[in-house]
Design a protein around this nucleic acid. Sequence first.
DNA 1: ACCTGAACACCGTTCAAGT
DNA 2: ACCTGAACACCGTTCAAGT
Lengths: 204, 204
Amino acid sequence: MRDPDPNGQARRHSRADIVRAALQLLDDEGLPNLSMRAIADRIGVQVSALYWHFRNKQTLLAQVSERLLESGTIDSDAAGDIESIAVNFHERLLAYRDAAELVSSSLALGLITLPARPLIHDAAVRAGLEEQGATIAADTIVHFVIGFTFHQQQRMNADSAGVAIHETATMTVADIGSQGDDFRAGLRLITAGIRATVAESRTA
Amino acid sequence: MRDPDPNGQARRHSRADIVRAALQLLDDEGLPNLSMRAIADRIGVQVSALYWHFRNKQTLLAQVSERLLESGTIDSDAAGDIESIAVNFHERLLAYRDAAELVSSSLALGLITLPARPLIHDAAVRAGLEEQGATIAADTIVHFVIGFTFHQQQRMNADSAGVAIHETATMTVADIGSQGDDFRAGLRLITAGIRATVAESRTA
DNA sequence: ACCTGAACACCGTTCAAGT
DNA sequence: ACCTGAACACCGTTCAAGT
């Protein structure tokens, strides 16, 4: 029924199995429905079984966050410019329902680190910023990307639930399409600030 | 025992009373402990009584968000520059425990508007940005302020809980003091971007 | 090593019924 | 108009016990 492992034991579920199932469930049902019981149901196990694999719900969710972030870190990012790294980060968050909120809380609890952060930092250094300035730039961009995507995904949920009787109802196709443009425009505002800061430090 | 209202009825609790109690409770116990039962307990009433005053928990929390934001909108903000408006907004969020997270979720659900947003928008127009650019600038700054403060308050919670055995333990007094500086530095990066964008549009 | 079953102390929300 | 009491369908977490 199930592959035995080398020593012939049963080995019913690995940590990775559970994280994968939880990620699936997140995308299908959204963060509010991602309960320990729902995850346990998904893999056909009792809730309490999850507590053999994970200390608590937050650490399980942190590993889900990590998995959803790591999956597609593109090689070229390591040498890319700030804007493309941020766009890539944004796209990865958009790939799963409620990902921004999930990542935001794991991050706030200090349970994960963002692969994009050092990439942006280094790109900022390459752009001419010093250590300290690059750290602030990376944090600013990370806050922007997560905040923007959080808001964006919440609107997506509201729209798909049809709860939007008010202004959202008047949103045209052009408005929806402009969200991606707004993201890039916000990003460019920050990168323009970085370039201006670099230029200023050179004339000083 | 209790002031009767003009028509001699009992009038036990107004909406404003409940919101005030909830705001108190938020500051004392934090957002995770701000349950409907805890709020009801605080004012000496059954949980179900709250549902006569509010449709559900989210709308109650939205009114708490509004109250915590409105209380100190300074007159000079209306004509101030972007940085001082943002600093004022930041300070108001810092005035109550977990305020950034609370406001973030009320905002995402579309249940509140931020007083700071039109102020920043208008200040951006005054700085030379056009309508569309000013909207994007306001959103970018709002995302930054909320994201930064959310993260900051979560760290404050972790610290006060003494959960921080890892790096936070090595945080010096200078590090703590530098958080305010980091906020201003991030803000200045964005305002530098605004100035650069304005300057660029004038040479074009 | 990995999981079951049952329990504990909670949640948000609804609704008939009281005054 | 404003609130009680009780119930419903959930939560996260713990723990003895099984295999």
